[in-house]
Amino acid sequence: MAILKKIKGKRIVYDAKTKKQREETFYFTPEPEPKEELELLNIQDAIKLVKYAKKQGWI
């Protein structure tokens, strides 16, 4: 398992009791960056695509 590197970050901390806030430095392991989700190909569109490709002589 890869060792995830911690990076330096800045955090704002709000105290709900005193209603005061402060800034602090902390080290954290970033969550993985999100990836674009590919949309699933509609089966009907896929059939049309294959038919069109056949008609064009591509396949």
């Binding site: 800045k10 955090r11 704002i12 901390v13 709000y14 709900a16 005193t18 800034e23 902390f26």
Partner: peptide, 20 residues
């Protein structure tokens, strides 16, 4: 209102403590 946090500078995280 439990908290109203005004983020005045860029940061990576905001914590609200003593929420109980």
């Amino acid at each position: 209102e439990i908290a109203s946090v005004n983020i005045t500078s860029n940061c990576d995280s905001v914590s609200i403590e003593n929420v109980n």
